[in-house]
Design a protein around this nucleic acid. Sequence first.
DNA 1: TTGAAAGCGCTAACAT
DNA 2: ATGTTAGCGCTTTCAA
Lengths: 342, 342
Amino acid sequence: MSRPTIADVAQQAGVSKATVSRVLSGRAEYMRDATRQRVEAAIELLNYRPSSVARSLTSKRTYTAGILISDVGNPFYPEVIHGVEDTAFQDGYDVFLCNTNYDEKRGMAFVRSLIDKRVDGVLIMSSSMSDEWLAELARNNVPAVVLDWDVHNARGNLCLLRVDYQKGIQQAVDHLVALGHRQFAHVSGPKELRTTQLRQESFLTALQGYGIPKSDVMTIEGDLRIEGGRKAMQAIAERGAGKTAVFCANDLMAMGILSEARAYAIQIPTDLSVIGLDDIWLATQTDPPLTSVALPRFQIGQMAMQLLFELLENPRMEEAEPLYAQVETSLTVRESTAPAPG
Amino acid sequence: MSRPTIADVAQQAGVSKATVSRVLSGRAEYMRDATRQRVEAAIELLNYRPSSVARSLTSKRTYTAGILISDVGNPFYPEVIHGVEDTAFQDGYDVFLCNTNYDEKRGMAFVRSLIDKRVDGVLIMSSSMSDEWLAELARNNVPAVVLDWDVHNARGNLCLLRVDYQKGIQQAVDHLVALGHRQFAHVSGPKELRTTQLRQESFLTALQGYGIPKSDVMTIEGDLRIEGGRKAMQAIAERGAGKTAVFCANDLMAMGILSEARAYAIQIPTDLSVIGLDDIWLATQTDPPLTSVALPRFQIGQMAMQLLFELLENPRMEEAEPLYAQVETSLTVRESTAPAPG
DNA sequence: TTGAAAGCGCTAACAT
DNA sequence: ATGTTAGCGCTTTCAA
């Protein structure tokens, strides 16, 4: 006894499939009450649930989106996913979660699979990605929203959602300068990442606004993980004499700074002020709690999904400019920053 | 110009749809080489990708599973999801991620949606769930793997995967007793959760094995979050004179203990030994790093998915006993435990 | 070795 | 107000 179909319901209710279909989709306006009720009773009796698969075949819509992320374990994602899913859920959409595992091949395999499954659209939020993904999606007319990625000659039904680091980082610099800091270090992410460049540039530019030249800033390349922060702290302790404030490209590295500072008996924030970026939940739990440039992660998720809906409703022509959107950052001040010593 | 269909390919190659279908599914044994090559060329030329939707309609298989979890943000899940996804990916499965948000109604809505989407099976890993979910899945013949949930009169194509807390908690108690501890406190989760009871029971039983009666153990009900741990620490400081070791039902609460202990100038582990449970990544980052009963989270994810495959291949009769499976826990010793003071 | 035709479960004209 | 019919894109007998 397999699942009942619309035909079973029709037979049970003594009507045609079309009639059943009508009550299913709420287009039962011109229907006799008695009929509708018979159909509803039959549905109830047979415990009938229409097959989305069959529906999708005719409607060309799966009410499903795919989301590509690097790694669920990265504390950046949970809230983003939450925002995406909430928004999707409200509109009856489901979401395929795909962990690329920082692996472009794997990501491509997911993209193919999503295309085969005929998802209505794809959200690309992995930190690394390949232009091929976009090309493949475009070839198949699958709309995509891309987070914070530099896409040139972007074709297809596309939206680029960017994080405006500028504003929050400016606030961070304002804050530090107001506290009397003039000697800065910066712990960046891997050089090849676009976000690394954006963050670093915003930081240096803001400092220049206060007359502090780039060349005065000690920049250390990190790995965006705690360990990278630890190593950076060592570098600062050994070669960064006089630096009183560090801006880290993410919170994890800032945590590494906090941790390793203890080993050097450097007091945070008394001896050294530290600012992170991301404002992950953990930042509230460190000792001292971390001042951080906050990304509106939940909102990023919401917006990404909303932008996808937008793309679905008003598709962009094949050769049109991609849609652009932006989210703002802002500084969350906690206790890892204090007046410059001396 | 919408996506090409099998008919387009057939026409392009000058063969019938059936022939194309054969090369798609690799059943091209009795096929002339020339024919196969023509078909492959046509597929290539048109950039054709078969529609999983259409395939599913005939094959009754979607190669898709659903996974219900409470909240992506909970540090328990990322690795589990990882395990699930890796295993699924290897077999060409995709996964619908559903965050119930600790809300049974929302969970039920997801269950319905998954049924409508005709997923091949469902993994239930949310900490709270309703028996109705299972009933609904069973009514629709959808196989399910349930993590660590007490299911009575379970019907349907079901597998119950349980975590054996016993073993790891026994090791924790062995460890503490060997260090000379005799006065214990326990910070439990919310009383109504099954896991709370299991963990507490394992702990008390192990202690009894050493002649320490339940009544000697100070038990505090917590909320499984850091804040709950903080409150528990207050209770212990105020009413727990003489307690030298605390076992917490999860790491987050153990972290709360560590954090609040500072406020009371209680040294961990010198004055008080603390053991958590979960062994989340964070436990390695606390000060001091946390001794914890480890759940093999990645393995749990892998097993759950494998068990689902098992259920798919050898379906259980409607009234059969559910399949049972188990994963072991074990103690990870770090620096939050030390010999009992005095 | 390949093709024709029916059918999977549903929707959407077009009839009535 | 409801039924008939023809697909949607694919797989699978059954023929040839």
